[in-house]
């Protein structure tokens, strides 16, 4: 199985209005730069394309080995009007953890 965010980090979702914030917290400090390079806002937007309109902003929290992804237009209009079952989007961290990442040491032969 290919490398997923799940293998390197843990995550929690929070909500404010129609915006979700999803943390990505490295288990190990050494993985932070890899995720900084590979877990781009574009890659995250692609994974949430069928759920959220976006945009996605990424904030870096090097001090906590973490990132904070803020995804707009993600919660069906917001907690109070959303027709979704998970109106807070609490389960969305699982989508983040499921994002597949490129192999850490790509072999030159693939090119």
């Amino acid at each position: 199985m290919s490398l997923r965010v799940y293998d390197l980090a843990h995550s929690r979702t929070g909500d404010k209005g129609n915006t979700a914030n999803i943390s990505v917290i490295c288990y190990q400090e050494k993985d932070w730069e890899f995720l900084q390079r590979e877990l781009t806002p574009e890659r995250v937007m692609e994974a949430f394309r069928h759920i959220a309109r976006g945009p996605v902003r990424r904030y870096e929290l090097r001090n906590l080995k973490a990132f904070n992804f803020v995804i707009d237009n993600a919660l069906g209009g917001g907690v109070t009007v959303s027709l979704a079952q998970d109106i807070h989007g609490k389960s969305l961290c699982s989508v983040m953890l499921g994002i597949e990442l490129p192999d850490r040491e790509p072999t030159a032969a693939l090119r």
Binding site: G14, I25, L61, N68, V70
Partner: peptide
């Protein structure tokens, strides 16, 4: 750490 970032946008 999970709770510190919870419901925060710009940290």
């Amino acid at each position: 750490t999970e709770q510190q970032i919870y419901e925060i946008h710009d940290p």
